[in-house]
Design a protein around this nucleic acid. Structure first.
Length: 679
DNA sequence: CACGCTTATATTTTT
DNA sequence: TATAAGCGTG
């Protein structure tokens, strides 16, 4: 079955490898997705039951795509029954099945990073840490400190000293806070992202449950291994029963490690052969993606990385256009240059969907997005979408969460403050009254049935909340979507009271109802939404138009593993790549270099790298600074691989307004040919 | 005690 | 930009 598949020799060796640990060191564009999918297909072909296979990927989307390909390759219709997903997603499923042995209730609530920060914020108040004369770290910072400590498996003092030095004096308080946080999560059946990994490891390593869990899987395959952390490595270690062959396959590229901020460590790849004796190592160096001129640039950039596992990528596609490095006057000039290049490639036959604009931080595309909208160039943006972080979306989900887990304190705290006139103090008192903290109480029923004491002006609104909850709780047969419809009806007036323009927010709630369609169980919907939130506006609303073409905008992180015919990297200036925020030590700077490398290696045929020579600070509006090209590109040998272009002086001169005549002609033409309603 | 106002402040990347 | 903390008012 593999003969038809067009694998090169090392790929085939990896796909058909028998039992025992296998490390595939796969350079960018060397077809690791194909190889991994082929290996899954091969295992299925050898008679391994799909449900005895575990495929761990970085995103759920990656798992889906890989299993789809495996299904096509193998002609095996059951690849869908393979256990596939992220570490967190699989941990969630396993813990709902087997968590009872660890004292977990199977209907625990999963907290995302924001929820975790909210819990920490509540405790921060309760412990009186915010009221001192000293500033205490913000709840978001506290959540990062906690998460980093857990994932890096490093003592708190060290993490704080190294990554949060300004919090050194607060370590004692942070420690007390974390103790309270852990205790509260346990009492309220809450698991944060890190708990999913911690409990999974506990499940896998416990003498009681370990053998059963380890026995579930005959083969385990892990993608993007360079971006896993110490905790995840421990989990893999515990995932095979002692004395059986370690049928563990990991794929990764140390040159593409970009999740150090999440405590990922390249040690996992480097130490793999030592940790799993008898490891077979296969290196993929044959690049099937990029033309040689683009590889020359990528190779030159990564060659300066000091801690590199040396690899020489090569390709048969020795011809092709050279990449372009373009300095622009300012962000407007950059947006203009990108639009022109995008349209020029489209004229040459590259659809917008095969082109991507990549950037370091989500807000780097703001100016470009305005320009694209102005020119009627459709696009979807990946990364940086904060749909689930919007207050009104959190409110709706909090109502659902209260119904699912009546002990969920943060959800109650949010829900009870929805009626006007009820603030933090009243909410806290109500939570005591209805028994949120009482293991044997049913707070939802108590709240609905008993007359609780609230401020006189709030009675009517509290009754509306009561009736909304009872409307959802009454019927056990109501689907999550139907419950959300009821919640939306309740929240309508609340949003109208609170916001000037409630329409857009109500539309978000409609999206939420749509996302819930097809789910039978409320708990499952909540957990999956948390673990796999919509990654782009198109995930929510569907593509801009079904028969239309659209440009991809993405953070570099979210573009990991993807490829495009044409890639435009923007804001390639020092301060953005590398980010000013990531200059604390050499390790951080090197991670930024690899980030640029990841961006460059997404391109198949053409690559445009641009940077504005002057850009405005979004914070202090009046100020702008002069930017230099990224330090990773500012070397003669790197520049030599580019065609270098200067600013587009015909667009703007020294920051003045665009030439009036050009604009009015464009507007005239847009009026004649543009879509109805477009200016 | 809630809420609307002001001022200071810190900003990346994501499961 | 958006959140947190502080202050005055009802």
């Amino acid at each position: 079955m593999f003969e038809a598949l067009d694998l090169d020799d090392p790929q085939r060796a990896a796909a058909t490898h028998g039992d025992g640990p296998l490390l595939i060191v796969a350079g960018a564009g060397t077809g690791k997705t194909t190889t991994l999918a082929a290996r899954v297909a091969n295992l299925l072909g050898r008679g391994v039951r799909p449900e005895r296979l575990l495929l761990l990927t970085f995103t759920r989307r990656a798992a889906r795509e890989m299993l789809l390909r495996a299904e096509t390759m193998s002609g095996h219709p059951e690849a869908g029954r393979v256990w596939g997903g992220t570490f967190h997603g699989v941990g969630n499923r396993l813990l709902r099945l087997h968590g009872r042995a660890l004292g977990l209730s199977p209907d625990f609530t999963v907290l995302d990073q924001g929820d975790a920060a909210d819990v920490l914020g509540l405790l921060r108040d309760e412990l009186g840490l915010a009221t001192g004369d000293r500033r205490f770290p913000r709840k978001e910072t506290l959540a990062s400190i906690y998460s980093r400590t857990v994932n890096a498996a490093t003592p708190l003092d060290e993490v704080v000293a190294r990554h949060y030095p300004w919090c050194t004096d607060d370590v004692g308080d942070i420690r007390a806070l974390v103790t309270a946080y852990t205790e509260r999560k346990r009492r309220q059946h809450l698991l944060d992202f890190d708990d999913l990994l911690l409990f999974w490891r506990a499940l896998a390593t416990s003498p009681e449950t370990g053998p059963a869990v380890a026995g579930m899987f005959e083969h385990v395959l892990v993608d993007e291994y360079q971006d896993t952390n110490a905790l995840q490595a421990d989990i893999l270690d515990g995932l095979r029963p002692p004395g059986t062959p370690r049928n563990l396959t990991v794929v990764g590229d140390d040159a593409q490690a970009i999740y150090g901020f999440r405590a990922a460590t390249v040690r996992n790849i480097l130490d793999f052969p030592a940790r799993f004796p008898g490891t077979t190592i296969i290196t993929l160096e044959h690049n099937h993606r990029s033309s040689q001129p683009l590889l020359d640039t990528s190779n030159a950039v990564i060659a300066r990385s000091p801690q590199r596992h040396p690899k020489t990528l090569w390709t048969e596609r020795t011809t092709g256009t050279r990449p372009v490095l373009r300095a622009c006057l300012d962000e407007i000039g950059q947006a203009d240059a990108v639009c022109r290049a995008v349209l020029a490639h489209r004229e040459l036959g590259v659809p917008l969907m095969r082109q991507a604009v990549l950037f370091r931080a989500a807000h780097h595309s703001d100016v470009l997005e305005v320009e694209l909208a102005r020119r009627n160039i459709p696009f979807v943006k990946y990364g940086g979408l904060r749909f689930l972080e919007a207050t009104h979306v959190k409110d709706a989900l909090a109502l659902l969460r209260v119904l699912e887990n009546p002990r969920d304190e943060v959800a109650w705290f949010r829900v009870l403050q929805l009626p006007a006139g009820v603030g933090p103090a009243t909410a806290r008192r109500l939570m005591q009254t209805i028994g949120v903290y009482d293991e044997n109480a049913d707070p939802v029923v108590t709240f609905i049935d008993s007359q609780v004491e609230v401020p006189a002006g709030s009675v009517a609104q509290v009754n509306q909340l009561r009736s909304a909850l009872s409307g959802c709780a009454d019927e056990g047969l109501m689907t999550p979507a139907a419950q959300l419809e009821r919640i939306r009806a309740y929240l309508g007036p609340v949003l109208e009271r609170r916001y000037d323009a409630p329409a857009a927010r109500l539309a978000d709630l409609d999206q939420l109802v749509l996302l819930a369609q097809g789910y039978e169980a409320r708990g499952r919907f909540l957990a999956e939404l948390t673990l796999d939130p919509p990654a782009s506006a198109s995930d929510l609303a569907g593509p801009p138009s079904l028969d239309e073409d659209w440009l991809v905008l993405s953070t570099i992180h979210s573009a990991k593993g993807l490829e495009f015919d044409v890639v435009h990297v923007i804001h390639a200036s020092d301060g953005n790549i590398p980010s000013d925020m990531a200059l604390r030590d050499d390790d951080e700077v090197e991670e930024e270099r690899r980030l640029l490398y990841v961006a460059l290696t997404r391109a198949r045929h053409a690559l445009h790298v641009t940077y504005p020579q002057r850009f405005h600070h979004t914070i202090r509006r009046e100020r702008f600074s002069t930017a230099l090209v990224s330090r990773f590109l500012d070397h003669d040998d790197v520049r030599a691989t580019f065609d270098v272009a200067g600013p587009d002086v015909d667009v703007r001169e020294d920051g003045g307004p665009a030439v009036a005549g050009v604009v009015s002609v464009d507007e005239l033409l847009a009026g004649l040919f543009g879509a109805p309603g477009a200016s």
